[in-house]
Amino acid sequence: MIHISDLRASVGDKEILKGISLDVGAGEIHAIMGPNGSGKSTLAQVLAGHPGYEVTSGSVIYQGKDLLDMEPEERAQAGVFLAFQYPVEIPGVSNAYFLRTAYNEVRKARGEPEADPLEFLDIVADRLKLVDLDEAMLQRSVNAGFSGGEKKRNEILQLAVLDPALAILDETDSGLDIDALRTVADGVNKLRRQDNAFLVVTHYQRLLNYIVPDRVHVLVDGRIARSGGKELALELEARGYDWITAEQGVGA
């Protein structure tokens, strides 16, 4: 699905990603863990095409295409989706209009017919149930005045509507109470298929009780310090990040 090799990215003079290599196959879920400031969000944003980060070397091949060569909207149209750690508020644009516009752009790119407002309402009504959001939220401005939990669920709603091949979830669990966490995790599990993949960025192991990863990678200071199976997450839960940071320090 996606093949990342030796990816380096910086902001100004500051290098944040210092050579990341990662392969995620179709049908897989990979978790990215790591302490605050290790570069998890930067990796997610670089994959989505954020213009504020400069990729200085390395490559990202997504479904056989050079992802780094594509505009953010082209990436989205090709099936890459990022659930933001900090979803953006857009006062004055209704959720319904925003979602339908995005949905139709993605459909157009796939050569599928666009949905009119009524057809779209049917599609979205079904997806709302998945994340336990009320239909009334469609008339509200995108994320404006939403609670932290509503924003995160709105990200998953968008994910469910756009049905991407590669979904990147950046700390979707942070700020969610346990019920909301389960709702979000159940939603993701229902969207899981053999032909899509998830990259789940999280600071805590908690979410991984519900979304069980095939692989866990620990990011420390812009590098993948360790990779393992789902038991690595439990080990991190028990021991914290310090031992990896220490090993990394010795190795560096």
């Binding site: 505009e71 953010p72 953006v88 644009v93 925003f98 516009t101 995005a102 752009e105």
Partner: peptide
């Protein structure tokens, strides 16, 4: 707002359309 612009683009909405939509949103208030 460049942050909002990137957010829209990351959902597949092309640059020109995203800009226009944000402009409209400014006026809508």
């Amino acid at each position: 707002d460049e942050t909002a612009l990137f957010y829209m683009k990351s959902r597949g909405i092309p640059n020109t359309q995203a800009r226009k939509l944000l402009t409209y949103a400014f006026a809508a208030e």
